[in-house]
């Protein structure tokens, strides 16, 4: 064994010959290490996406092979279905409200608890706690809080204590249900965004803000012209997470309302679930998933376009 190995090792030391076998060896190693991940990726991501495309062209119930070819009819039906349009509208509503309310609130909180506030560790934990809960648990907690029966629902129990105020239906009210869902979503996710902003704030050198103060900037001016521009890349990240999360929101809404009453809190993912896994119209469900994919892609491309400016902190 030793005798056999020795000359080979000598060869390796030769500068002219060692390169190509060494590189081959490296490639083999790289491929071997990549292979499991690639196989999993192809099998569980690429293949399902392409099979979705295939099934979306069929009226298929999931049993046996897909034989009833309908072309683009599924897509035609989706795009003209009032319920799907309503679902897209609700998704966009969540996106807009998240960007307009949830993120600014998280930023304000981060600035407040991110610096020298006493007990900031306590508040940080409190605000972040909802994010740690699973969506299912959060939904069930809020279901019981929002129960219309004052003897069962905590919020209504408080409301009826106020003279002249009656118990509210919250999730049973077509006009109020989306507002309730959004409150819960905000409660659940603003902690994450707050934490991201706090991490971003840590990266801003104190000297810059101090310099601004010496130049005569007040607190608001220093936030507006120094802190926020320097948080730019963090804000972009949270926006991206927030929008994609809103577009694909499912668990919370499904458990709290099942998209009801009468589709008034329907979002794209619940709509897809209803068709694919309750009605077992898997062809139609696949088509809905593809439409969702397309909408997310449009957003992603738009995001990349808007994100071209470089980060001001990268130069520091």
């Amino acid at each position: 064994m030793n005798i056999a190995q020795a000359p080979r090792r000598d060869e390796i030391t030769l500068p002219t010959r060692n390169r190509s076998p060494r590189r081959t060896q490296d490639y083999v190693t790289i491929v071997l290490f990549l292979l499991p991940a690639c196989i999993l990726f192809l099998l569980f991501l690429v293949y399902p996406i392409f099979s979705s495309i295939y099934y979306s062209l069929y009226n298929w119930s999931g049993i046996g092979p897909a034989v009833n070819f309908v072309g683009l009819d599924n897509f035609k039906q989706i795009l003209t279905d009032q319920v799907f349009i309503k679902a897209v509208g609700n998704c966009l509503l969540i996106v807009v409200l998240s960007l307009a309310i949830q993120l600014p609130m998280a930023l304000a909180m981060a600035i407040m608890v991110g610096r020298d506030l006493p007990g900031r560790g306590f508040f940080r934990t409190i605000f972040f706690m909802p994010f740690v809960l699973s969506e299912v648990i959060a939904a069930i907690i809020w279901l019981s809080l929002l129960s219309p029966d004052p003897e069962r629902g905590f919020i209504n129990a408080l409301l009826v204590l106020i003279p002249g105020v009656q118990a509210q239906n919250f999730l049973g009210d077509i006009n109020a249900v989306m507002a309730c869902v959004f409150v819960v979503l905000t409660w659940k996710y603003f902690g994450l965004h707050m934490l991201l902003y706090m991490a971003g704030l840590q990266n801003i050198p104190r000297e810059i803000e101090e310099a601004a103060q010496i130049d005569g900037a007040n607190r608001w001016q220093s936030i507006r012209y120094v802190t926020i521009p320097l948080l730019r890349s963090t804000i972009q990240t949270t926006m991206y997470l927030s929008v994609l999360g809103s577009l694909t929101q499912f668990n919370l809404i499904w458990i709290m309302t099942r998209g009801g009453p009468v589709n008034s809190s329907e979002v794209m993912a619940t709509y897809m679930y209803r068709y694919a896994f309750i009605r077992f119209q898997l062809g139609y469900g696949s088509a809905v998933a593809l439409v969702m994919l397309a909408i997310c892609l449009i957003f992603s491309v738009a995001y990349l376009r808007l994100n071209r400016q470089s980060d001001p902190l990268s130069g520091i």
Binding site: F44, L45, P48, I49, S52, L244, T248, F250, N251, W254, A269, M272, Y273, A276, F277, G285, A289, M292, L293, C296, L297, F299, S300
Partner: peptide
Amino acid sequence: AAMIVSACAPAA
């Protein structure tokens, strides 16, 4: 995006 749509939604 593909992961979020294809993995997240149906496996919910």
